[in-house]
């Protein structure tokens, strides 16, 4: 291979080589027309390019589009979630539910509100409730009726029972 061929082959290009001057380009063209071995080299480059162009277009996996769109939608919803609603979204995802972010946000707010009320009640109010006075007696006879009795009459009855007991005790002592 003579020096000219070596230079031409080094600079052979399918894609315009910006490093070459117009004169060099013209010179190489003339050489290429006359020299068979350089022509062969050039044709092989053309063939390589043709091989690349003939590679088949690749079909993506059929589920790629759906999976990608689903992931984008999920990202969109995740973005719409308030930070405090994230645990809820996680639980809903586990349950295979995917409500809109606003719904999850509202549910979270509601939950936290109820939790606050519950905790406040637990902290500031006594939860041991006194036994209500008016609780009806469960063993009450079905025919029995609860009636209002004046307080004075109850006191009188209690006093009467008291004196009766005392007199009984007195009589047993005497015996």
């Amino acid at each position: 291979m003579d020096l000219d061929c070596k230079r031409v082959i080094e600079n052979l290009s399918l894609h315009s080589n910006p490093d070459l001057s117009h004169e060099e380009r013209a010179e190489f063209k003339i050489h290429l027309v006359q020299c068979q071995s350089c022509q062969k080299e050039y044709e092989e480059m053309l063939h390589t390019a043709a091989v690349l162009e003939s590679l088949p277009a690749l079909d993506p996996p059929p589920d790629l589009l759906g999976r990608t769109q689903e992931r984008i939608t999920r990202e969109h919803r995740r973005h719409g979630l308030a930070f405090f609603a994230n645990p809820f979204a996680g639980i809903l995802r586990l349950l295979k539910l995917d409500p809109p972010p606003n719904f999850v946000n509202c549910t979270a707010v509601l939950f936290y509100l109820m939790l606050t009320v519950f905790l406040a009640k637990l902290t500031f109010f006594d939860t041991t409730e006194p036994t209500p006075v008016s609780t009806p007696n469960r063993s009450l006879h079905p025919d029995a009726q609860i009636v209002g009795v004046p307080l004075g009459s109850i006191k009188a009855t209690v006093q009467r029972i008291g004196t009766e007991e005392e007199s009984k005790e007195g009589s047993t002592k005497l015996e």
Binding site: A57, R67, T68, R71, I72, E75
Partner: peptide, 30 residues
């Protein structure tokens, strides 16, 4: 997605990686 998958395939030479990279690329773009 088809052309991004094509590009990823030619760059990664592996269908699984190409599909993953396509998803990642769209997510990043979004």
């Amino acid at each position: 997605h088809t052309r991004i998958y094509g590009l990823a395939y030619r760059m990664l030479s592996n269908p699984e990686d190409a599909a993953d990279a396509t998803q990642e690329a769209f997510l990043e773009a979004y």
